[in-house]
Design a protein around this nucleic acid. Structure first.
Length: 255
DNA sequence: ATGGCGCGCGCAGCGCGA
């Protein structure tokens, strides 16, 4: 089984890239973030033609997530339980015998801002929810734009980013708290190229300089991590015309 | 090299992302 995540930065604009990528990569589950579409405008027919059924939670202009699967998503949830939030950042579903959670974590804007406080609150609620989900679903996969670079090796210039949003110690502690539940960072299960990133700023010609961050992640429960045979970042879509600023991350599980 | 891009909204220019 192949699981993937991609922040598309507008599903409307990126739909041709997405359909091409799905055709080439042939994932079984695809998690999307920043769809920026109200549910009434979700391109369900186009994605069905590509072979996928979807669970999604969208809103106008901002945020929005979708979970695509070849088998119909079951037991769909589109919010963290008992965490009041207008922002659409969560789509969870059971696909076959695997529980999949698609996340678009808050950006946090700047350390000390209201949005940063919201990010940390969101992560605290997420941790509690994932503890419950893990208890119920030994086969759990958490994918998405988590907006945290967990370690210095996930940052192109750790000195410049030290203490900044995405790299601050409270954020990294929130990431480690997810690992402490028994989730594993699929990317780090394998030897990887140095300076592997999943996001590059549109400004400052960041992609050409590989001035990026690794903030898009696939976390696997112990049972799934045992079955994981590969995890990689696909930089190809970042080289296309009008790319998303993020690239897909893919994990393959032995069936 | 974070003014600098890209997107949505909506029709000018701003908010937001990371």
């Amino acid at each position: 089984m192949k699981l993937a995540t991609w922040n598309v930065n507008s599903l409307k604009v990126r739909l041709p890239h997405l359909v091409d990528w799905l055709d080439a990569a042939q994932p079984d589950v695809m998690c999307l973030q920043e769809t920026k579409l109200e549910d009434g405008k979700f391109p369900g027919a186009e994605l069905e033609a590509a072979g996928f059924q979807a669970a999604f939670a969208g809103q106008k202009t901002y945020n929005g997530v979708a979970l695509l699967a070849r088998a119909a998503p079951q037991d769909v949830a589109v919010a963290i339980p008992r965490f009041a939030d207008e922002q659409k950042r969560v789509a969870a579903a059971t696909v076959g015998d695997t529980r999949v959670i698609c996340l678009y974590a808050p950006n946090g804007q700047a350390v000390g801002s209201d949005k940063y406080a919201y990010k940390l609150r969101w992560y605290a609620a997420l941790r509690d929810w994932l503890a419950d989900e893990l208890a119920r679903h030994p086969r759990l996969a958490v994918l998405g734009d988590l907006n945290i670079a967990p370690e210095d090796r996930d940052v192109h210039d750790p000195k410049a980013w030290e203490g900044q949003v995405h790299c601050s110690e409270p954020e990294r502690a929130a990431f480690r708290a997810l690992l402490a539940l028994g989730l594993q960072d699929a990317f780090r299960l394998f030897e990887q190229p140095e300076k592997s990133f999943s996001w590059w700023d549109y400004r400052v010609v960041a992609f050409r300089r590989n001035a990026g961050l690794r903030i898009d992640h696939i976390l696997l429960s112990k049972e799934l991590a045992t079955q994981c045979v590969a995890c990689s970042i696909d930089k190809a879509p970042r080289k296309l015309e009008r790319p998303s600023d993020h690239t897909p991350v893919v994990a393959e599980l032995r069936s």
